[in-house]
């Protein structure tokens, strides 16, 4: 399968936004090569600002730019943007509902050898808890591209999260994309595999394996974590009666938390969670880490078998 880094989709979208809109500005905290904002620095130097290694100032400066009518796209590693910049994101950007677009790069454990300090595994929880925030976790580079274009049209803050390494390309330029909808990528009757980010690919692979066992698994790409597409999620819960949620994030507070909160209130069914289980990551090759931290298709299959028994 063809593999392309999701961050390439972010850079490609920013280039396009810079061509289309005079009001777009791209802000960086000195990681342009990592986030692909390097492409903007070269092609649109007037639209690129490197504030230096200063994440709090990064978010605050973007807030000020938004108040003079610009649409700032702000990116650095997700762990630093949402961690060091959280107070600024909450109290300045979200509380005042400013039009600031956040891009969290190097998301998940698949960042790899840099180790736990650089692996954003709590960013969704941190962003999802703040009012006025829209949170998106695309599944591949095309979706990262489309999501980055789409958030330009939101009047308010957003957080798009994307990974570092070449990731399976499971959609195409022509795949339908509605930012506010969870998308059914594969139909099935017995269990729903809700997933986002890299884990959509693992869920699709898991569905293939489950089919051979006679289990019909539905795969739903929940790229928008907030606001959650309640209609699609509850319909899937009603039609399949069991679910597994798969994400490259702590099982606390991420997509798993969001779906459990929704289902517990609207349509309770058995749910199993595939994600990082309340621990830090470590250095390693991305694929080795995904296996070691139980984020492979086999782990999704095991969770599906388990949840089926609870139906």
């Amino acid at each position: 399968m063809n593999r392309v880094p999701m961050r390439d989709g972010y850079g490609k979208a920013l280039l396009e936004l810079c061509r289309l809109h005079d009001d777009v500005m791209v802000l960086d905290a000195d990681v342009a090569k990592s986030t692909r904002t390097e492409w903007i620095r070269k092609e649109f130097p007037d639209k690129y600002i490197n504030v230096g290694i200063s994440e709090q100032d990064l978010v605050g400066t973007a807030a000020g730019l938004s108040l003079t009518g610009f649409v700032p796209f702000v990116s650095t590693y997700g762990v630093f943007l949402t961690g060091r910049g959280w107070g600024q994101i909450r109290n300045t950007v979200c509380y005042n509902k400013l039009n600031v677009k956040l891009g969290g790069a190097h998301a998940g454990i698949s960042v790899g050898p840099d180790g736990a300090t650089h692996q954003a595994l709590e960013d969704i929880a941190l962003m999802r808890a703040i009012p006025n925030m829209t949170v998106i976790t695309p599944c591949d580079w095309w979706e990262t591209y489309k999501a980055t274009l789409a958030v330009y049209d939101i009047k308010g803050p957003s957080y798009v999260r994307f990974g570092r390494n070449p990731a399976p390309v499971i959609t195409s330029e022509d795949t339908p994309f509605d930012l506010y909808k969870a998308a059914i990528f594969r139909d099935g009757r017995d269990v729903t595999l809700f997933a986002n980010g890299l884990m959509v690919h693992e869920a699709l692979t898991a569905a293939d394996i489950l089919e051979k066992e006679g289990i019909s698994a539905r795969v739903v790409n929940v790229r928008i974590v907030k606001p959650l597409d309640l209609d699609t999620i509850c319909t899937c819960a009603a039609e399949t009666g069991a679910a597994v949620v798969c994400e490259e994030h702590q099982i606390m507070g991420g997509l798993g938390g969001a779906i459990c909160e929704a289902l517990a209130q609207h349509h309770p069914i058995p749910v199993e969670l595939v994600g990082i289980r309340d621990r830090f990551g470590e250095s390693g090759k991305p694929d080795d880490l995904l296996k070691a931290y139980n984020l492979s298709a086999e782990d999704v299959v095991a969770a599906a078998r388990k949840v089926m028994k609870r139906k």
Partner: peptide, 9 residues
């Protein structure tokens, strides 16, 4: 930081 962003804008 916000004032700077405004000033730059």
């Amino acid at each position: 930081s916000i004032a700077n962003g405004m000033a730059l804008g």
